[in-house]
Amino acid sequence: MITTIIYTIVCLVVLGLLFSVVLYLVAQMFKVEEDPRVDIVESLLPGANCGGCGLAGCHAFAEDVVKASSIGSFYCPVGGDAVMEKIATALGQEAVKTEPRVAVIKCHGTFDNRAKTNCFDGYASCKVMASLYSGDTGCKYGCLGKGDCVSVCKFDAIHLDEKRGIVEVDEEKCVACGACVKVCPKSIIELRPKGPKNRRVYVSCSNKDKGAIARKACSVSCIGCGKCAKVCAFEAITIENNLAYIDASKCKLCRKCIDECPTNAIWAVNFPLKVAVTPNKVEVQNPVVKNEN
């Protein structure tokens, strides 16, 4: 009996030693020489592997940053300036300041605002839907509401409101990695500067149809009337293809355009509420995004 146990122990120990030697040799043989700074940079990165920087992941980012002569052309949207500064210090370089940004959805075609004209009966994906036809409402440009951006977001920062049929960005969580911008087949998501105190003004519509058609499809569409552009004192608003666009770098957040817009397509968020305005349902449900109107 005892001999069996001894044999077993001896055998296992010998086998273990043998395998460890083999493993060591193989590891030596296939060792890849790598710049040690790559590891340092990678350890500073958030490690989300989101691809927001445009590279395959955090390791690829670290490799490229170390290889490059200057880090000026690199930016980790997740870590933001804080991380970039750390990386710059680690590599002995100067960091470049970038304005923090956030994803905004340029559509507010909820079920209330935008009537359904048909019912999509295929695989619930915006990509599949957009490849087949223009969408299940009269608007050819707006949110399809199947949530491709929701599933692609690694930070749980974008959610589909199934009752209202539209996606919303949680700006606390959004790191502006841009994954949703890339995946949206209707290109209605834009990364905009967060703005002072997170206050910003933007056109929440992507409809390029003529006014009458756009208005018929959706009650909060931009009809390209140009009133906002006329009232803007800073030339921040341009109208192209029947659609207004506010240049965030020129906008002084005066909010005159909002009062002027006949369809409530322009949004101002995170401003203190005006007393006269009764908050509508939207504001109560989602305190983060506030419609001034």
Binding site: T117, N118, C119, F120, D121, G122, V128, L132, D136
Partner: peptide, 8 residues
């Protein structure tokens, strides 16, 4: 008319 279905 019943609701219009669309699919691939």
């Amino acid at each position: 008319m019943a609701r219009l279905l669309v699919s691939g």
